[in-house]
Design a protein around this nucleic acid. Structure first.
Lengths: 230, 230
DNA sequence: CGATAAACGGACGACACCTTCCACTTGCCG
DNA sequence: CGGCAAGTGGAAGGTGTCGTCCGTTTATCG
């Protein structure tokens, strides 16, 4: 498991995903089934992408379709839950990076970690770029992430470690590009991703003076808006 | 249509795609329908990807499903025909590049052109990376293309215009990465692709000395073999 | 023009997946 | 231990796509 950095130590993460967040606590067996479904779903999404038939997940989890649908009314809600942990890892990674005194190293770390996660996990990539209508605070997280990245970029530029014409959207660009290499075997994807990232990080350095084509409007915000239109 | 370079002038391309290549010539109306199907298919594949229901293509072409299936027994055969022209453009581009006295400029041209085609054409990307069991000489073309690229890379290195640790598979890597940006609007995709390519081309230059992670086994050959296993 | 075979498209059966309903089971609490 | 509500899974209805069959149309040629 080279791709899953340990969570940032600090305030003990309050037990998320353990039971349904809001209402009445689930009955013991129900809770068990819910966990099992999530477990199977993670596995399935990871290896086969987010298009796997929900029926198959239910079957492999040893429950009926109805059970799955009662817990997760929509496919998106299941995906959202299944990757909640991974997303929170992303946030931690970003926080770590912001805490790093060397902004360039911080930037590299975020990018490398997230890209490795993408490369090892087919479903994560899909989840990462899709919306989570259910997760109420997803938008907030997203905004926070973008702000964090922007700050990181600014600091790296100020430190003279990042080319001046670098645009925050270039990170999205890199992530999109990286998502292109996913789909082969885990090993191959990871190797390809690493090399790609290395190439790109090099070209982000300030020594480069050659002019670039203008950045594309690729904020995660716009990206999601565009996808929605499709 | 900024992405479709004109075909290389030279021996007048013998009329492909005009009628069924081998057997009895088609009846006039049949030929017309066939053309119309291909036209619609190209459009549909380009804008919606290669997963569009064949029934929809038939309907939009004003023919019954049976007609489509009679002409193109499998989905792959339709895709293959629909993108035959584009693929031949790729080959021409490569030939042009090989003819260029400046190998670096040649390399840039191939990459930029093909990436632009990918970025403007959703279906092309899928077609490019998928197999064509029908097209007998597809394998031959592919091999030829790989050999050509290898030669181009070699020449560029010998001319001191390409970093020494560049691997031919890095071109595949770049194309895969580029395919990741497809999916947004045509404009956005193209802008993103251009910037990505610019970044990567810069990092291919020989001034870079920092060590890279090893190349991934991404020959088009292996790639297709791996996909087949999926 | 008229015969003939090629070509056509509507309709249909098969299949996969989604989603809901409902009669039955079972954990939980008094 | 017993009743009840929460929970369950199988079965069934719905939808969309695939791929084919077959009666009808129509281009082509004499």
């Amino acid at each position: 498991m080279p791709a899953q950095p340990s969570r940032k130590p600090g305030p003990p993460a309050e037990t998320v995903t353990t039971d349904t967040d809001g209402g009445t606590p689930l009955r013991a067996d129900a809770q068990h089934n819910r966990d099992r479904i999530l477990e199977v779903a993670r596995e399935a999404f990871t290896t086969q992408g987010t298009d796997v038939p929900l029926t198959a997940i239910a079957r492999r989890a040893g429950v009926g379709p109805a059970t799955l649908y009662r817990r997760f009314p929509t496919r998106a809600s299941l995906i959202s839950e299944a990757f909640a942990e991974q997303l929170s890892i992303c946030v931690s990674v970003l926080d770590e990076a912001l805490a790093d005194p060397d902004p360039w190293r911080g930037l590299c770390t975020v990018i490398e970690q997230v890209c490795a996660m993408q490369a090892t996990d087919r479903g994560f990539t899909a989840a990462f770029f899709s919306e989570f209508p259910d997760a109420v605070d997803y938008n907030r997280e997203r905004t926070r992430a973008e702000e964090g990245l922007e700050r990181l970029v600014r600091r790296a530029k100020d430190a003279g470690q990042l080319r001046d014409d670098f645009d925050p959207s270039d990170i999205t660009l890199l992530l999109l590009a990286n998502s292109g290499v996913v789909g082969e075997s885990r090993q191959v994807s990871l190797a390809a991703s690493r090399r790609l990232v290395a190439y790109l990080l090099q070209s982000f350095r300030p020594e480069h003076t050659q002019r670039l084509p203008p950045p594309a409007p690729l904020g995660l915000q716009q990206l999601h808006k565009a996808r929605r239109a499709t």
